[in-house]
Design a binder for these strands. Structure first.
Lengths: 219, 219
DNA sequence: ATTTTCTATTTTGTCGACAATCTAGGTTCA
DNA sequence: TGAACCTAGATTGTCGACAAAATAGAAAAT
């Protein structure tokens, strides 16, 4: 299990993490207004740290802010989802390409081990896979790219939005096993250091995932 | 000429734009420390707006901040340049693909007109092209993708860093004419609505550009 | 009745001051 | 001599208050 631990140092960090979690999980509703004064009283902290947290949330596209008016949690739309996955396809495709070049043999071995352990879960139909397992897989590829911008944009930026769509649209679909097979093929391409293939497979994988979630959205 | 006008509403906006410009242009040296108190006295503004501006600069990867320590302007390295162009290749490739699908006929006509006007400049060897003309071309493709995330990440995020590398490495190379031809081919692919080709050509174009700037870096 | 204008209230933007943390320099101890 | 430890100074983080702008509601005009 890849441990991606963000440690909160300042009060602003804590509030940022907390707000982000509540937005992703839908505790704070999509589209709702974020009042600085209200949050500062609720969280027992000054408005300055609330403002800083909101600014950071804006930077990862979780809230939209207008000058002199305020900040709102983004609302989830079919168009937004498609645009998000287009960017994912592009960035994670590149990540897979770079991972095939830059991952160490040890990291690749770990990735294979992860897949094997997940294989059992899939056989036992533990739906747990979709949520955490899928994220874990993608995180490792992204980290394996060794590209700081890529990692930052995806991990700190877009992935929370991806999770927000998933959580709030209630993803527990029947795509578990097929996604697992796609993961296996991607890892194989990386093991062979075939960067072209790795990129192509990853792009397809995300495309399928987009189609799946899109279908859910229309139902 | 595409007008991409950002209007400053708050004091924080003004300081952000100004700091960003000075960093990109090298007025504030790469790697140097940004002291909040010093900046607040120099710019005759409170520390709060300086902090907010610095946070925004961090979001577009122009400065790096450490808690309780401070913020430094990023330093330019060969590795950073390569990683930056890898992301550009990925994102702008996707932008070209989407532009081929989503640009209106009018927008494509404008793009062709832009290229024709630039053609004269290139013949007359007005080096002006490289700086503004190239940016203008790429901006239009990005906007033509109609993907809000893509636009935001590139225009608000990475492009200032790209310009920082260009400016501070003194780009005025002999790549003007060949880049122009590559632009022409990309536009042609877009005109034919051939999204696959448009993406591929854009990726190659950025790869060549990377190799060019990398060669400069080593000289 | 509808629209416009004005006013009161609320919300965001900015400021200066205080608290917490880090940095640098010197001192003490082995 | 060198390393660990303290102390003073400077820097960042946080706070509460004021200024400026936007919103909502009532009053006035058509």
């Amino acid at each position: 299990m890849v441990i991606f631990k963000e440690q909160a140092i300042t009060a602003s960090d804590k509030v940022f993490f907390r707000l982000r979690k509540e937005i992703v999980d839908g505790v704070i509703l999509a589209g709702s207004k974020l009042s600085e004064t209200e949050l500062s009283t609720n969280y027992a902290v000054s408005r300055a740290v609330i403002r800083e947290a909101i600014n950071r949330l804006e930077a990862c596209h979780l809230v939209e802010r207008k000058a002199n008016i305020g900040a709102r949690v983004v609302s989830l739309t079919p168009e937004g989802l498609i645009e998000l996955y287009q960017v994912r396809e592009s960035l994670e495709g590149m990540a897979a390409r770079l991972a095939a070049k830059n991952m160490s043999e040890d990291e690749i071995a770990d990735l294979n081990a992860l897949l094997n352990s997940q294989s059992d879960e899939v056989k036992n139909a533990e739906l747990y896979y979709q949520e955490a397992g899928d994220l874990d897989f993608h995180y490792r590829i992204i980290q394996g790219s060794k590209n700081a911008y890529l990692i930052s944009m995806l991990v700190n930026g877009l992935y929370h939005l991806v999770r927000m769509y998933r959580v709030q649209l209630g993803m527990a679909g029947p795509r578990v096993t097929s996604a697992f097979d796609e993961h296996k093929n991607i890892v194989q391409a990386i093991s062979l250091r075939d960067s072209e293939l790795a990129e192509m497979l990853m792009r397809r994988h995300i495309m399928y995932s987009k189609n799946n979630i899109k279908a859910k959205l229309q139902s």
